[in-house]
Design a protein around this nucleic acid. Structure first.
Ligand SMILES: Cc1cc2nc3c(=O)[nH]c(=O)nc-3n(C[C@H](O)[C@H](O)[C@H](O)COP(=O)(O)OP(=O)(O)OC[C@H]3O[C@@H](n4cnc5c(N)ncnc54)[C@H](O)[C@@H]3O)c2cc1C
Length: 560
DNA sequence: CTCCACGTTGATTGG
DNA sequence: ACCAATCAACGTGGA
């Protein structure tokens, strides 16, 4: 069972409409009493409850209502993280280091975040209990072994998490364990937003904006965290592993410069907001995607993804900056607007069936994309022959992060711009390699970029040559991520195949040998793509369920 | 029903 | 360096 509202005892903060994975299932909306007949007796001599704080995302102590609740009146809090080999086991056959599903940069980011979480818990007299296994089996076992009274975890709207959490909630309830699952990963609960809109999922940003009010304030961190007992009843917990412990060795490639963890997240938040003029002038579309020493945006995305940073804290601090300044930019282009884009896609993702697929997705244009593994592999591996595209894809592989507009450029290139390959294939590559990869945001943006939903001006195509060039005419970004081109004169850097052979020789980079020729001719490919999009769109128009009146009209016309 | 303004982030050309 | 006009032109949603 889940509370629908929750007052944070000992604080003046009131967190509205907390949770509820449970709202999707039976008994929606019916307020339920909390009194549960516990099969698990409370601790010795009514000492207080034993609670299990299950960390998944939300890897932080600040603004963590689930953690706060787990501490209230507890004799012992068991802070748990379960490392699932399904996501973490090395896959030597994968195209780049990592598991089948997760690149090594995100695995490293996770481990660093766990290490930091453990350190912060220790500062509060507790520690992180790390286990290996499938959470769906591990968590219920722990509930039994530790005679847990209350299970606390952050509400998560991803389909994978919804299924997992529903299973675990069912078992917990069977064991008489109370479950508390508050909203703290997003500013708003998508369920509330959709309800506010009369049950319709808002599908434009402007419509979404109208539904948002003031988000709840963050809750304070717990002052002290009752430690887990020494005796863990034979449960095997491990220290936070290192990458090598998980089997990742001989990693010599340049890796992500962004370390994980709440401490780093808060530091980066401070750093991002200290220049108030920068914050107030922020206009997303004007950012420079080729800036990589000092990126043009905050790079807070991986911290938001793992919940090392609370979006509510970010939002609160942002509004504090705005309030101290006369003028500031506004959504959609402002920094606040970026946080609201995140909310928008979380809401759309929650309310749309099959959001992560073309088939069966009611908002997704049905387009006959190609299933071309050769093109896909070239794109994934930074071998398209277009340096701007390839450099961005190498940045993705090496750093796990790219500027938003670089994501635009490569996503457009793979799909509607040049290659006409399934957006879902590109989504999978991003999902594996991004350190900020996020189900709702990633899918939402791929739908956008492929002009499958939200955005439909498919004739607006990024040039794989001039788009990068206009930001970085010297090609410093390209030269950094594609060192093979480092001696190519800047005049040819975006189109090295046009360099005379003598120039190629002098630059130690023969096109077709050291660096590939363009895999498609953009001037031809973009026209073909446009044409295919036009045909697909018109077929979607005629296949869209015709309204009764338009059917009548057609009939009448036929009779006439 | 029709009409029309609007949409975070195009490219090119000309001033 | 920056801006505006032009091109070609989509679907959505509110009036
Ligand atoms: C094809 C494609 C795939 C993407 N996949 C992801 C993803 O898996 N995870 C992810 O976090 N972002 C994704 N984005 C959105 C965006 O590119 C990143 O959020 C942003 O570049 C992260 O950098 P930042 O933190 O410096 O952003 P900032 O501009 O500093 O924005 C602050 C925060 O706002 C949120 N935000 C910013 N832009 C968007 C957006 N367009 N949509 C939703 N939320 C946004 C992010 O949480 C971000 O951290 C994707 C974009 C594209 C085009």
């Amino acid at each position: 069972m889940v509370a629908e509202s929750f007052r944070c005892v000992g604080h003046s903060f009131f967190v509205k409409s907390l949770p509820s994975a449970a709202l999707r299932t039976a008994n929606c909306g019916r307020r339920r009493s909390f009194s549960v007949s516990c099969s698990n007796e409370k601790g010795n001599n009514n000492m207080g409850k034993r609670s299990l704080m299950w960390f998944r995302k939300g890897l932080r102590l600040h603004d963590n209502p689930a953690l706060l609740r787990s501490c209230e009146g507890a004799s012992h809090v068991y802070p748990v993280f379960v490392l699932d080999p399904w996501f973490l086991a090395p896959d030597p056959t994968a195209p780049s280091p990592g598991s089948k599903l997760v690149g090594v940069n995100r695995i490293r980011f996770l481990l660093q975040s766990l290490e930091d979480l453990d350190e912060n818990l220790r500062k509060h007299g507790s520690r992180l209990l790390v286990l290996h296994g499938n959470p769906t089996t591990v968590i219920p076992e722990l509930l039994m072994k530790w005679q847990i009274n209350e299970l606390c975890f952050e509400f998560d709207t991803e389909p994978y998490a919804q299924d997992r959490d529903a299973d675990i909630k069912k078992l917990a309830t069977k064991y008489g364990v109370e479950v508390f699952s508050p909203v703290s990963h997003t500013l708003f609960n998508p369920i509330d937003t959709i309800r506010k809109n009369g049950g319709q999922t808002p599908l434009t940003y402007q419509a979404f904006l109208k539904l948002t009010g003031k988000p709840p304030l963050p809750v304070t961190a717990p002052l002290q965290i009752p430690s887990p007992p020494e005796d863990l009843n034979d449960v095997h917990v491990v220290p936070v592993p290192k990458l090598e412990d998980l089997g990742y060795v001989n990693l010599d490639e340049e890796f992500s410069p962004h370390p994980g963890g709440e401490t780093e997240a808060l530091r980066r938040l401070d750093k991002s907001l200290v220049n108030q003029k920068w914050v107030c002038d922020f206009e997303k579309p004007k950012g420079n995607p080729t800036a990589f020493i000092e990126p043009a945006t905050t790079v807070l995305s991986p911290y938001l993804k793992f919940g090392c940073l609370s979006c509510r804290l970010f939002h609160q601090r942002l509004l504090a900056v705005y309030s101290q300044n006369k003028k500031h930019s506004s959504p959609p282009v402002s920094l606040e607007g970026q946080l609201l884009w995140r909310e928008f896609f979380y809401t759309a993702g929650y309310g749309t069936p099959n959001f992560d697929r073309m088939l069966g997705n009611p908002i997704c244009k049905q387009i006959p994309w190609k299933d071309d593994d050769r093109l896909l592999a070239a794109w994934r591996d930074g071998q398209t022959g277009y340096p701007w595209i390839d450099a961005a894809m190498v940045q993705l592989r090496k750093w796990g992060w790219m500027h938003h507009l670089a994501r635009h450029a490569v996503a457009c290139f793979l799909t509607r711009g040049d290659m006409f390959v399934y957006w879902e294939k590109g989504r999978d590559v991003f999902d594996r390699l991004l350190i900020d990869s996020d189900w709702a945001i990633n899918n939402g943006n791929w739908l956008w970029l492929s002009a499958s939903a939200f955005f439909h001006q498919y004739h607006r195509i990024y040039s794989p040559v001039t788009f990068g060039k206009k930001y970085d005419p010297d090609g410093l970004y390209v030269k950094h991520f594609l060192p093979v081109l480092k001696d190519m004169p800047k005049y040819y850097i975006y189109e090295p195949w046009t360099a005379p052979l003598a120039v190629q020789k002098k630059a130690n980079c023969i096109i077709g040998v050291d660096y590939p020729r363009p895999i498609v001719d953009h001037s031809i490919a973009n026209k073909e793509c446009r044409e295919k999009m036009g045909i697909a769109y018109s077929q979607n128009r005629s296949q869209a369920a015709p309204s009764v009146s338009s059917t009548m009209r057609k009939r009448r016309r036929g009779v006439d």
